[in-house]
Design a protein around this nucleic acid. Structure first.
Lengths: 190, 190
DNA sequence: TGTACATCAGTGAACGCGCGTTCACTGATGTAC
DNA sequence: TGTACATCAGTGAACGCGCGTTCACTGATGTAC
């Protein structure tokens, strides 16, 4: 039942945009009255939090077995393109009135980043204040690697987020070709 | 009066997230009844469209006089960081129920891109199908330059969008240092 | 200067809608003797 | 096997809220003679 609620909630998010998560609407589609769902989730925010944590874990799983960095990048993109609503849940604008400071949520996000850092190259350019910050952020990781990880994530996110909002499509440019071009560049250190 | 409405609408967007644009709320804050605003805007969507067009023009103006590519990148970022709600209006998730196919809107977006293309470097790597698409997208522009423009935009967007959602802050990393690192890399062809 | 009129910004009521959440409750199911 | 009871998923009404939009209207302002 909890799973059914989540599935329907995701489907409604997919159809109606990030604000479209409504307990009443989910209940209705489930053929049940609104208050019934409060047996399973204490509040709308709790449901939302669970969806986000699920999404982090799912994304993490999707990129974990993808091989080297190129494989990870392809898996990251494929996951996002297949379910843009979940990608937005993770990296889009914060939902009004929703406080994203749940402990499990932060842990789930770190899990995904750990997978990325495991296959990131090493950048020789981490120095000065940036180096100190990178060491503070990921104490066990060489700062050059942490920098390469953040940088790679940033570039993937730029590509993926513009793709899922249809920006390349409206230019008549195939996102696939652009993605390959950028990842090749990134891999060759450019 | 129209300008006052727009200003208040922007302020409410800034405070309440992308869904927070409400004619009634704007009217209330203006000390006027809801229907009064229909003298000035035919509908909520029309107001929204105007805000988006304004934002494109404003962003275009901000990056137009910024000198070379490094200057443009800095101006682009400064504009977005100063008013993230407007940046989201342009490049964030589409608003549910809002159709972004206004003619003026498309023109405004192209104006911004033209400024970027004017200072973009040239990439030697545009070939094959991608080259054909780039030529179709910007007929008068060498495809290598178009590719460099799209690529630079993508990377700037990755940096800026993660910054305004607070992702670097939550890692303890100064977005300023990261931005400079990435733009230096981009400038040196890496 | 005074009067008749037109303009038009803004009003208040209403329509129909949806939301999250609480509350006391029904009624089916399963358990214990 | 039959009866008494506990559990608990789900109900329907209600609270207070906000939304976009329409409609007929008031009432102040400005214009024309």
């Amino acid at each position: 039942m909890r799973q059914e609620v989540k599935d329907l909630a995701l489907r409604q998010l997919a159809e109606g945009g990030a604000t479209a998560l409504s307990i009443n609407a989910v209940a209705k589609e489930l053929g049940v009255s609104g208050p019934a769902l409060y047996r399973y989730f204490p509040s709308r925010d709790a449901l939302l939090t669970e969806l986000i944590i699920d999404a982090y874990r799912d994304l993490t799983a999707a990129i974990a077995g993808a091989g080297d960095f190129s494989g990870l990048a392809a898996a990251y993109r494929a996951w996002a393109v297949a379910q843009p609503h979940r990608y937005r849940l993770l990296f889009g604008a914060p939902l009004p009135g929703y406080d994203a400071h749940d402990v499990q949520l932060v842990a789930a996000a770190q899990g995904a980043m750990a997978v990325l850092l495991a296959v990131a190259a090493d950048s020789p350019d981490a120095d000065g204040a940036l180096k100190v910050q990178l060491e503070g952020w990921q104490p066990g990781v060489p700062p050059g690697r942490a920098l390469a990880g953040v940088s790679a994530w940033t570039r993937m996110h730029g590509l993926v987020s513009l793709e899922i909002e249809g920006n390349y499509a409206s230019m008549g440019i195939d996102p696939d070709l652009l993605f390959r071009y950028e990842i090749d560049r990134l891999n060759s250190g450019r």
